[in-house]
């Protein structure tokens, strides 16, 4: 089986209000050297197949059509073999 570990992130050009709020909180906690925080989504999908080429195509289709909004988000992923 293959597990896809997918990160969906806001594009650098898009303001991330949640990240900004976390940065402020970190400054309050005393971490003055924190410049920026960006919040992302992490999604794991397990496939019954071991065919990485095929699953790669599926993951890209899944990300393009549902998991990421192309207007504001980008994604990247990696695979892990699971028993």
């Amino acid at each position: 089986m293959l597990k896809a570990k997918i990160f969906v992130q806001l594009k650098a050009s898009v303001l991330d209000p949640q990240g900004k709020a976390v940065t402020n909180s970190l400054h309050h906690l005393g971490f003055q050297n924190v410049l920026e925080t960006r919040i992302s989504k992490y999604i794991e999908i397990t496939f019954s197949s071991d065919d990485e080429t095929e699953v790669r195509k599926q993951v890209e289709h899944i990300c393009d059509s549902l998991l990421a909004n192309p207007n504001t988000e980008t994604y990247h992923y990696q695979f892990e073999t699971v028993e």
Partner: peptide
Amino acid sequence: LPGTLLMNESL
């Protein structure tokens, strides 16, 4: 429609 509705700036 074009564009996206993001979370409010105030959260």
